[in-house]
Amino acid sequence: MRIETHTLSATAGGRAILTDVNLAFEPGAFTGLIGPNGAGKTTLLRLLAGLAEPAAGRVTFDGRTAAQTGRRALARGIAYLPQSGPVHWPLRAEALVLLGRLPHRGALGGITAADHAAVERALATADATHLRGRIVGTLSGGERMRVLLARALATEAPVLLADEPVAALDPGHQLACMALLRDTARRGSGVVAVLHDLTLAARFCDRLILLSGGGVLADGPPARVLTDAHLRAAYGIAVHRGEAGGEPFLLPWHALPSPTCQPETP
């Protein structure tokens, strides 16, 4: 599924968050959304998922609007992993993951062998099989995120949108999650994730979109986006750079006075 934004604008509390954003997201690519707090990363992700209405402009899914596509088709086509999805009932983890299969079931449809198989694959892929019998409310933040990731994977949608998927994870599971998202894209899905760790973004993503100042400050391969000038403008920081095993890393090193940044002209 190809998702496009057309002169997209969004507001929150009467304040402009995004203005005239034009982007396209293709299958088979792992895209990272980066930028300072309040830059509109989560807002953009929710708009891409069809979970929010823009103030102006539109989002299309293979050339069709959300209304033209239909809610059920969108639910089958897009899996959404929020920052922290609330669970209001004492569900076992396996039952929560099974909710990811709802878009594939009819109003009176029961749980099928295909549903069970998808849940097993998702639990194994998210390294959460051993958590299947636990009540979700007893899980740690990292364990909960892995179960929520499994729920999104169980949908087996052609697009996966993830909001800060590694925020609650320990370093080992952060690396595993990023590798999983990259591999999911390699298998042909479109993957878009909100990220804050710049080294993980540089190492695993095919493309980065740096949001700042109400729009897109930079868009492209990580090396083109994570320049000193862009990081100074967006975050007001200087970074320390290096290389390990042929892969780059960068560490935020100290704060700098940040000039007002201007988004790229599409």
Rank of each mutant, 00 (worst) to 15 (best):
C261F: 08
V191N: 05
P259W: 14
R187Y: 11
T60A: 08
I3G: 02
P27S: 12
V59F: 08
V119W: 09
G214H: 05
A56F: 13
L81R: 05
D183W: 12
R151N: 01
T199S: 10
P165A: 15
A55L: 12
T129A: 15
P259L: 14
A218K: 00
G137N: 10
P54I: 05
I3A: 07
S212W: 06
A52F: 06
A150N: 00
K41R: 12
L99S: 15
H230P: 03
G137Q: 04
A49S: 11
R72D: 08
P259Q: 15
V191L: 12
L81I: 08
I209N: 02
P263I: 04
G57I: 13
L51Q: 11
G142T: 10
L96Y: 01
A73L: 09
R186E: 12
H196Q: 10
A167P: 03
A150M: 01
T7N: 14
A202R: 02
A117K: 11
L44D: 04
L44S: 04
G172K: 12
F30M: 10
V119N: 00
G57S: 07
P86T: 04
V97Y: 01
C205Q: 02
G70E: 01
L74E: 00
L99I: 15
Q83P: 03
P221M: 09
P263C: 04
A185K: 01
T7C: 15
A24M: 12
V147A: 11
A179L: 15
A66F: 09
R224P: 10
P27A: 11
G142A: 02
P86D: 05
A185Y: 03
E94Q: 13
V87N: 07
F204S: 06
A16G: 13
E264S: 15
V119C: 09
A233V: 08
G141T: 09
R46N: 06
